[in-house]
Design a protein around this nucleic acid. Structure first.
Lengths: 198, 198
DNA sequence: TCAAAGATGTCACTCGGTGTCAAGAGTGCG
DNA sequence: CGCACTCTTGACACCGAGTGACATCTTTGA
């Protein structure tokens, strides 16, 4: 499982990206997203605006970056599920990864606060939904091959994947609005169970 | 059903908005969304940029304006369904309005072209998804009262409404990518039938 | 007819984002 | 070590989407 060692340039680049996101999220939570300008960020990080945009293509990417690889991971996880398993059950298992993330790493106060900011901000929320729909496309591709519904004129695979993600989102928003009281996995089970009994 | 006669100012305002959207869509289809600047639009309409922004709050609103009232209409339609009807069947019936729209008014070449532009353009697509999620919220509210699942900690209603809209979207994209070959209603039936048999 | 309310244009400005170019820092190699 | 090559950075000018302020028309209604 040893990855190729990253070249030093790439490592420093990632480190800077990391610091920058950290800094940005803190500022966003403190002052608000719209109220924090790129110039503020760049100044706080001690770099020029131009340099900032060499690390992030847009202000939104600061917030959405964490979802970058999730789609591919989910698709891979789906591919790794046993062959005979019903698609709905497979999707539920695959979402376990997201549940874990929410239950463990996402417990920090600022993380939760940032998540709420995204939901409340029209543009950010739109961007968030766009990311989710991109994930869906990747998972959909895998779902098509698994179910054998390869005909692009067949809307069923897209419907099922979309429904599953709707459950994921429903569980997520519920989890956020209830201040993380119930375990995320339970909410997900409730949501997905309401669509199709497992 | 006679509405109060609108004041003349409001009527001219709507007329201008209508002409502006028409003009804009034509230009977007012809030159592309990003390639058409607000200055272009304003010039083509014979008004200043500032005046344009008094009719539309943003460039996106030119494209998304048509979805403004749809959510409320859907919620109203849902409220008008017979009391005992299962929620999934009610939602299918309510979506009939959208199906009608697609089958009748949305057949113009430019309308279809514009719809594809939206799907292809990241920002527009994100904005589109945001509109859909706002519609969902309205329909969700009505769904909660109908099903009696009023507890905000209960994700089931959100899951079902989300799933239904996923079917709607799946049918929509399929309908678009297949060049409108199958009737929209059939696609919707297929999609929703794959989630829950009616 | 006249005053209030509304619509429009102009101008200056903010903010996100990009192209260009020159200067600086890091790396590899003889 | 020194040299070339590449990557990174800052500075600057620029674009497009929006917004605020103010002055000027036009419309409306009494």
């Amino acid at each position: 499982m040893q990855r190729d060692p990253l070249p030093v340039r790439e490592r420093t680049r990632r480190a800077v990206r990391g610091e920058l996101t950290q800094l940005a999220v803190d500022l966003f939570v403190e002052k608000g997203y719209d109220e924090t300008t790129i110039d503020d960020l760049a100044a706080a990080a001690g770099m020029s605006k131009r340099t900032f945009f060499r690390y992030f293509a847009s202000k939104e990417e600061l917030v959405m970056g964490k979802y970058e690889v999730l789609g591919e991971q989910l698709a891979e996880d789906l591919a790794a599920r046993p062959a005979g398993e019903p698609i709905w059950a497979s999707l539920r298992q695959v979402f376990g990864r997201v549940a874990e993330y929410f239950e463990s790493e996402a417990r920090g106060a600022t993380t939760i606060a940032m998540e709420k900011i995204v939901r409340d901000h029209p543009t950010l929320n739109a961007s968030y939904l766009d990311r989710v729909s991109r994930m869906q496309e990747l998972v959909l591709k895998e779902t098509r091959t698994r179910t054998g519904w390869l005909d692009p004129a067949d809307p069923r695979a897209a419907a099922i994947v979309g429904a599953a993600f709707s459950c994921l989102i429903a569980a997520g928003t519920t989890w956020l609005t209830t201040n993380q009281a119930p375990p995320f996995g339970d909410l997900l089970d409730q949501a997905m169970g309401a669509i199709q009994p497992t």
